[in-house]
């Protein structure tokens, strides 16, 4: 057991934690809002919107994230000239951009299903009551439906965040130095395989269960109007 190599690598591991949190947090934040129009399109009666959003969600939920990451990162090279012409090549040749781009598209697909489930689970009477109070479409969504859907979908969204924290470990495959990336580099340089990966596992456990504890607090806040019925 070689603990010194891990202690020496500690500053790099801390950088890795920052990268992991940034990539997971950034993609989740963008995905959280991008998922709303996708969820509305999935419930839309317009056939183009419906099929476009359904195709998108099915593709990103039905294929491995690693394959999506390779499709974007390596696949972009096949369209080098086209991307160059529209000025996007400088982004698509960067691992960080491809990583966040793919992670965002992926989490948007999963999150949109949570939004959709939450919106569909709202009792019809509540929507009718809001209409009877004279709320406009936008007011209805903004003040009644979104907060309610968020409350209903929160446990599922907690799972999605946990999944996303772990999913970011794949970006190490395209040479981003997140927790896993740092662990792989230290492991092979100093020949400390199980030490480095065990330490990385401990860091992920800390992040995941730290978030779960935080999420319980948020859940209480979301359900504060139901104090008597929930724990």
């Amino acid at each position: 057991m070689n603990i010194n190599a891990i202690i020496e690598g500690l500053p790099r591991f801390i950088d890795g934690v920052i990268i992991t949190v940034t990539y997971a947090g950034g993609s989740l934040l963008i995905g959280f809002f991008m998922a709303i129009p996708v969820a509305l399109m999935r419930s839309s009666r317009n056939r183009f919107f419906y099929w476009f959003s359904t195709g998108y969600v099915t593709f990103f939920r039905g294929t491995p994230l690693l394959a999506q990451l390779f499709l974007v990162y390596y696949g972009a090279g096949q369209f080098h000239h086209e991307l160059d012409v529209i000025g996007l090549w400088d982004f698509f040749r960067e691992p960080w951009f491809c990583a966040i781009f793919t992670l965002t598209l992926n989490t948007t697909a999963y999150t949109s299903e949570i939004w959709r489930g939450g919106l569909q689970a709202i009792p019809k009477a509540e929507i009718e009551a809001a209409r009877a109070c004279g709320l406009s479409d936008f007011q209805l969504l903004r003040h009644i439906m979104f907060p309610r859907a968020l409350g209903i979908g929160w446990p599922a969204y907690t799972n999605e965040v946990v999944y996303q924290i772990q999913a970011t470990s794949l970006v190490s495959v395209i040479s981003v130095m997140d927790i896993t990336g740092v662990a792989r580099s230290i492991a092979s340089r100093d020949f400390v395989y199980y030490e480095a990966f065990l330490f990385a596992a401990a860091l992920y456990l800390l992040l995941v269960y730290g978030f779960i504890a935080f999420s319980r607090l948020v859940e209480k806040k979301l359900h504060r109007h139901l104090k008597d019925t929930t724990t």
Partner: peptide, 10 residues
């Protein structure tokens, strides 16, 4: 709480 990739490498 641990990513599949990390467990696989471990």
């Amino acid at each position: 709480g641990v990513p599949e990739l990390v467990l696989l490498l471990l």
